[in-house]
Amino acid sequence: MTDIGIVSYGGSIPRLRIKAEELADVWGKDGTRIAKGLGIAEKSVPSIDQDTATISVEAARNALKRCHINPQDIGSIYIGSESHPYAVKPTGTIVGEAIGATPDLMVADYEFACKAGTAGVQNCFSNVKAGLIKYGLAIGADTAQAAPGDALEFSAAAGGAAFIIGNEKVIAAINHTYSYATDTPDFWRRAEQKYPRHGGRFTGEPAYFKHVTNASKNLMEKAKTTPKDYDYAVFHQPNAKFPLKEAKILGFTKEQIKPGLKVSYIGNTYSGASLVGLAGVLDIAKPGDRILMTSYGSGAGSDSFDITVTDEISKYERDKAPLIDDMINDKEYISYGVYAKYTDLLYWE
């Protein structure tokens, strides 16, 4: 059977950062304690001229730099985000035009809280499997919003990753994928509202843990695998605490989780979070490595993937674009005042 999976990938993380202490000082909270509690010391912040479209374009261009495919062979582009720049008008057409993939193209913007990007990967996978397209481009990217003073302000970050899915020169085969979804109101943003609302502690057990656990377990049952069969596991990372607890629930070790856990350095990139984690793992992966990735989107659902890295990764030109850790290390700190201006917290006429 021909492998279907990841042909290339690329990330994009804005270089501005704000420290938890800086945020905490403004609101009279203990930054060190919060940073320790969430496991997030600092988060990435979009510059005034960066949004989900620019992050998506840069991630897609990085993916294209690492392979030799003709952008005209990309038959579908799906972009998952909860911060598409337009409510009506797709981000996908902007990306399609900016990478030279238009006009013979299926395009849609997806929205499913933080798992819309992995839903895009599944749809590209299905299109390739059905023989409808040669390559599909799936992107998860966000410039996450948080109301000033809300607990989310310590985690809501910006970044994304792009994955080209196909069946030629596959560097990481997607062996199985499985999704688990229920109606669970743990986090939402109503139409035309600027900031999301969340159910506080309710976002844990009945939401994140239930969905990630069931999706991962059922996927492993389908793939006939156990946690021991995997070299790496990547879970959605709204903070560093949740994925580490999830690892324990499922029986994964810290060593399997750590390489894909990028939230501590950049915050929660929402639709980008699990995909940036996967990109970080692919940055160091060797042929034969097996990866389990499970995303989580509030509302709620999880997409789980069983992935095997192929021999093709030895020939893959990873160094043609920056690695996730390169982007994490390239940073410039800003104050809360600059953060407020850049993230549109200030209003004036």
Binding site: S47, I48, D49, Q50, D51, A53, T54, V57, E58, R61, P85, Y86, I94, A98, D330
Partner: peptide
Amino acid sequence: SEFRKIQQDGSTGAIYYGYKFKPVE
């Protein structure tokens, strides 16, 4: 070159994207 937002027609108008440049490391 890098893909960035250049300007927009206020908060209700179209968003114009284009190139800006950044240093090569």
